[in-house]
């Protein structure tokens, strides 16, 4: 099978050596089934072992390999080289995050936000396993199922100009996951999560740019989750105004 050559321009930044990031160009021979991540692996193995990037599963599940490809946040494992045939492919670290080295960004901020929304099922009182599982109907599952597909790849944060302006913004993925649990019929943690999603830098910071939902590689619609959370918050506020002694 004949091989084409891809030209890849990768951001290099080694903080101990470089004052500023710069681009380095590589030529990579590729087959039809190769993705940008394969090209990065080829560069690291065959051309330049110092190139640094994150990756793990190579199949769009782990969410480690996000980068800006030709200016758009994408998973490098899900971007085929043949889609860029005939032009130079620019690979940069995801914007809006501090860069640690080359394509590796600091995920700390997102990790803290993820913990803050408590992405697990909260029960007022746990029942022992012998009493059986918490049952759920197909309709109840449908209310949140798309939001449980989030792989924490942070592409939505890279695409969000609001997060770019204010990193305190809770952001798309964390809110989508908060909503996933708020809407889960088995969960009873609404009172714990509501203060987090409705604080000043929670959902109300979102001005509906909508790019988070465009770039999501798993078909999650974080913009929808954020607006639904706003609706829940607003109806809750009205309810507590009208029925101060418990309108839940």
């Amino acid at each position: 099978m004949s091989q084409d050559i891809a030209t890849i321009r990768v951001t290099r930044y080694r903080p101990e050596k470089d004052a500023k990031p710069f681009f380095q160009e590589y030529k990579v021979p590729y087959r039809h089934d190769m993705v940008v991540l394969d090209a990065l692996n080829y560069i690291k193995a065959e051309i330049d072992g110092s190139l640094t990037y994150r990756w793990s599963c190579r199949m769009g599940v782990c969410g480690s390999c996000g980068a800006n490809i030709d200016g758009e946040p994408k998973l490098t494992c899900a971007s085929f080289l043949h889609d860029f045939k005939g032009r130079t492919i620019t690979v940069e670290p995801m914007p809006n995050f501090p860069v640690i080295k080359d394509l590796v960004v600091d995920m700390e901020d997102f990790m803290e936000k993820l913990v803050k929304i408590k992405p697990w099922i909260i029960r007022e009182k746990e029942t022992p396993p012998e009493q059986g599982e918490y049952k759920q109907s197909a309709q109840e599952l449908e209310r949140y199922s798309q939001f449980s597909s989030c792989i924490n790849c942070m592409l939505c944060y890279a695409a969000c100009p609001i997060y770019g302006l204010n990193e305190k913004f809770l952001g798309p993925a964390a809110t989508a996951l908060a909503y996933r649990y708020i809407e889960d019929s088995r969960d009873q943690g609404k009172d714990v999560r509501f203060p987090v999603v409705h604080e000043m830098e929670g959902v109300w910071e979102c001005t509906l740019v909508g790019e988070c939902s465009v770039v999501c590689p798993k078909g999650v619609d974080p913009m929808l989750a954020i607006q639904k959370t706003k609706i829940l918050g607003a109806t809750n506020a009205i309810k507590s105004l009208l029925m101060p002694r418990g309108g839940h």
Binding site: P15, P21, V99, P161, V209, E211
Partner: peptide, 30 residues
């Protein structure tokens, strides 16, 4: 200490909304 080096973060440039069609349409809407 992982803060030995000055933090490098790509910030939004004033022309960020010209980067793609969705951003531009958002700005027109606003």
């Amino acid at each position: 200490d992982n803060k030995r080096y000055p933090e490098l973060r790509r910030r939004l440039s004033p022309g960020w909304w010209t980067a793609n069609r969705h951003y531009t349409m958002y700005m027109v809407r606003e």
